[in-house]
Computed example of a mutant assay.
Amino acid sequence: MNRLHQVDPAQATGKTQELFGAVEARLGKVPNLMRVFANSPAALEAYMNFSSALMRGSLPLKLRESIALAVGEINGCGYCLSAHTLSAGKAGLSKEDVLAARRSTSADDKFDAALKLARAVALQRGHIADADLQNARSAGLNDAEIVEIIQHVALNTLTNYTNEVARTVLDFPEVKPGELEPTLATV
Score class of each variant (00 low, 15 high):
1 M>E: 06
3 R>P: 05
3 R>M: 02
4 L>S: 04
4 L>C: 04
6 Q>R: 07
7 V>F: 00
7 V>I: 15
10 A>S: 14
10 A>V: 04
13 T>E: 15
15 K>Y: 09
16 T>I: 15
20 F>E: 00
21 G>E: 08
22 A>C: 04
23 V>G: 02
23 V>L: 00
24 E>C: 02
25 A>M: 10
25 A>D: 14
27 L>W: 02
27 L>N: 11
28 G>A: 08
34 M>I: 01
34 M>C: 10
34 M>R: 09
36 V>I: 10
37 F>A: 05
38 A>C: 08
39 N>G: 10
40 S>P: 05
41 P>E: 13
42 A>I: 09
43 A>I: 10
44 L>K: 01
46 A>L: 12
46 A>H: 11
47 Y>E: 00
48 M>L: 15
48 M>F: 09
50 F>Y: 10
50 F>E: 01
52 S>K: 10
52 S>Y: 01
53 A>R: 08
54 L>D: 03
56 R>I: 00
56 R>A: 13
57 G>T: 10
57 G>L: 03
58 S>T: 12
60 P>C: 05
61 L>C: 08
68 A>S: 15
71 V>E: 01
71 V>W: 00
72 G>K: 02
73 E>C: 04
73 E>D: 12
78 G>W: 01
81 L>G: 04
82 S>M: 09
83 A>D: 06
84 H>G: 09
85 T>R: 06
86 L>G: 07
88 A>W: 06
89 G>M: 07
91 A>P: 01
92 G>N: 12
93 L>P: 03
95 K>Q: 14
97 D>F: 06
100 A>N: 11
101 A>N: 08
101 A>I: 02
103 R>S: 14
105 T>N: 07
108 D>H: 04
110 K>L: 14
110 K>W: 03
113 A>C: 12
113 A>L: 06
115 L>I: 06
115 L>Q: 03
116 K>N: 11
117 L>P: 02
120 A>L: 07
120 A>W: 01
122 A>W: 01
123 L>I: 13
123 L>W: 03
123 L>A: 11
124 Q>N: 15
124 Q>P: 06
127 H>Q: 14
129 A>L: 14
129 A>P: 02
130 D>T: 13
132 D>W: 03
134 Q>F: 07
134 Q>W: 05
135 N>R: 14
139 A>P: 03
139 A>R: 05
139 A>L: 10
141 L>H: 02
141 L>D: 03
143 D>F: 00
143 D>H: 05
143 D>I: 07
144 A>P: 01
145 E>K: 04
147 V>F: 12
148 E>C: 06
150 I>M: 12
153 V>I: 06
156 N>H: 14
157 T>L: 11
158 L>C: 12
158 L>W: 15
159 T>Y: 08
160 N>R: 07
162 T>A: 11
163 N>T: 03
164 E>R: 11
169 V>N: 07
169 V>D: 12
172 F>H: 07
173 P>E: 13
175 V>C: 11
175 V>K: 01
175 V>M: 09
176 K>T: 13
177 P>T: 10
177 P>V: 08
179 E>K: 14
183 T>I: 13
184 L>K: 15
185 A>H: 11
186 T>W: 08
187 V>D: 10
